[in-house]
Simulated scan of single mutants.
Amino acid sequence: MSRHDARIRWGILSTGHIASVLTRDLALLPDEAEVVAVGSRSLDKAQRFAAEHQIPRAYGSYAELAADPEVDVIYVASTHNDHLGSARLCLEAGKAVLVEKPLTVSATETEELIELAGEQGLFLMEALWSRTNPLLRQAAQIVQSGELGAIRHVNASFGFAFRGDESHRLLDPDQAGGAIFDLGVYPVHGVNLFLGEPSELYGFGTLAPTGVEAHAAALLTFAATESRPPATASIACSLEADLPFRLEVLCTDGSLRFDNFLLPSELTLTRGIGPDANKETLVTQWPGGGYTFEIGEVNRCLRAGELESPLVPWRDTLAVARTLDRWLLSIFPPLDPELVD
Rank of each mutant, 00 (worst) to 15 (best):
Q141Y: 01
G164W: 02
D172T: 00
V143D: 05
R169A: 05
G149M: 13
H153M: 14
R169Y: 02
I142E: 05
L170K: 01
F158N: 14
S167W: 03
F158R: 15
F158A: 11
V143H: 05
S145T: 14
V154G: 10
N155C: 09
E166P: 04
R169I: 03
D172N: 03
R163N: 11
V143T: 03
G159D: 10
A156L: 09
A156W: 02
F162L: 08
R169V: 06
E166S: 08
F162M: 08
L171Y: 00
I142F: 03
S167V: 07
D165L: 06
N155K: 08
I142M: 04
R163Q: 10
Q141F: 01
F162C: 08
I142K: 05
Q141R: 04
I151N: 04
F162P: 01
S157N: 10
E147M: 14
G164E: 06
R152T: 15
A161R: 13
N155P: 05
I142C: 04
E147S: 12
Q144Y: 08
R169G: 02
G149P: 03
S167K: 08
E147R: 15
E147T: 12
G164M: 05
I151Q: 04
F160D: 12
F158M: 12
V143L: 07
F160G: 10
N155T: 10
E166R: 07
L171H: 01
S167F: 04
G164C: 06
D165I: 03
F160H: 10
Q141E: 05
L170S: 02
Q141T: 01
L171I: 00
Q144T: 14
G164Q: 06
G149I: 10
Q141P: 00
E166M: 07
H168W: 03
L170W: 02
L148K: 02
V154L: 10
E166H: 06
L148M: 09
Q144C: 11
L148F: 09
E166N: 08
R163V: 07
V154D: 13
A156R: 03
D172S: 00
F162I: 07
G149N: 10
D172C: 00
I151H: 02
G164D: 04
H168G: 03
G164A: 05
A156N: 11
G164V: 06
I151P: 12
D165F: 03
A150Y: 07
S145L: 12
G146K: 10
H168C: 05
L171G: 00
H153C: 14
S145R: 13
E147I: 14
S157P: 11
V154A: 14
